[in-house]
Design a protein around this nucleic acid. Structure first.
Lengths: 148, 148, 148, 148
DNA sequence: TTTT
DNA sequence: TTTT
């Protein structure tokens, strides 16, 4: 038995990037900032921003690419995942990402976000009862093609 | 923007009950106990059990009925929902339930649980990447028939 | 082992109510609305609001009374708790509440909220690292010494 | 407004490590494994383990060192935090950790775990109502007076 | 790199 | 590196 759960509400630092694997699976990557603010002992306002790498697969990846953009807010749930890769010097490097399973788009289409102009998108999908934040699994989903 | 999220890990007090609406939608109800234990100031062990009413719809309802039983453990996520109804004296009454969107079955088939004997069910469904805890929406799902 | 966790982000329907028990413990009650919005099959925008009863104890209760008001947003975490009581006809009645352990105040002081005018209150308390959302903090904690 | 929340239930891969900063602040580090299991399309059982670096500060750090050990289970909540550091070749490297704010110890003392033999520790601390998972508690809190 |  |  184990639980691996992440919940984030933050703002995108850049437009999302959508790619497709050779097998045709959609993957969307974006970075999300969460900021905490507090007043320190000396009464000084403090602020600290954390950046999170988010990965989304399948149909939800395409929706994220469509509805999200730099500066937009997103509320998401997912799990932590650490991938390893080799850098240019042959060293093992690790990257921790949030593999998002649900993404909720917050706020209206902002001017300048040319990939979601005028779209109403308070949720990633029509909320079928009890699955409202979820995306039904994509029938054409090429699981064997996904590298994790 | 709002968030309404519940996460529970507990044990069923009774076998789950499965019903179907006139429109054919499956609904599964069960109660789940969560217990907290602590040692009080006088060094005495204390324990308090909370009971939660859980509701599940669609295909996941049928899986819960199949894999869960009295005494079994479940880890679930969902949202809070308060229904009103009229009691026998015509008074408005309220019941708060957890509308579960994902249910993870914990532990093997226990003796006496005749509806899941020998079944391997660590998850409610095959974990398609990034949707691993989710149930794809039931194509024959009669949303109009669901009373909420 | 069990988990009983609630996470809510919503808006207060009324000003919070602060009381004290005979023993002097502070209790704050308020109701919080979470609203979900979606577009139904016919393209119609739908919206559903859920009301949650929230209870807070101790110092955090006083902070909630000070910083929250009707219409203000709050992000909170807590656990579910169902209390029973007897109604006027001697019937057993049950009320489910969220016993909040952390409350984060969102947004600046709104006009008309005369109990928090001009107050900066993005968090319920000074966020000592790693305990930032929590109430009490260890007096001997050497915050300046912690490298983050 | 932002949310940065992690919830993990897993098992320690090694004994925790406790250190103190020059200023005297306690820091505890350990790695936690979460494992997901599922049955793939061909009916084959699959399993994937994720390792998480956890950091705990202050009094809770000392409790973790006291009650946790290799192989023990822990349920924790915290937030994501990515630290940067320079490797031996002068390259910027990043490590993502979970800064835990609450840790719940699961299961009894196991043989071989010589730092928690016979200790009852279902929670990290005495669960003052509504703050049960939290570290410090208000000394003037009238627990006997609270009606739950 | 976001935003307030 | 854990565990079932």
């Amino acid at each position: 038995m184990s639980v691996n759960k992440v919940i984030l509400l933050g703002r995108l630092g850049q437009d999302p990037e959508l790619k497709y694997t050779p097998g045709g699976a959609a993957v969307c990557n974006f970075s999300l900032a969460t900021t905490e603010a507090w007043t320190d002992k000396s009464g000084q306002k403090q602020e600290k921003t954390e950046w999170h790498r988010v990965v989304v697969w399948g149909k939800l990846a395409e929706l994220c690419n469509q509805y999200l953009a730099k500066g937009r807010q997103a509320f998401l749930e997912g799990r932590l995942q650490t991938r390893s890769w080799d850098d240019k010097d042959g060293n093992k490097r690790y990257t921790t990402e949030i593999l998002a399973s649900t993404v909720q788009f917050i706020g209206g289409a902002s001017a300048g976000a040319n990939n979601n102009a005028g779209v109403d998108s308070s949720y990633a999908q029509a909320p079928a009862p009890a699955q409202e934040y979820q995306i039904a699994s994509d029938a054409s989903f090429a699981a064997d093609d996904i590298p994790f």
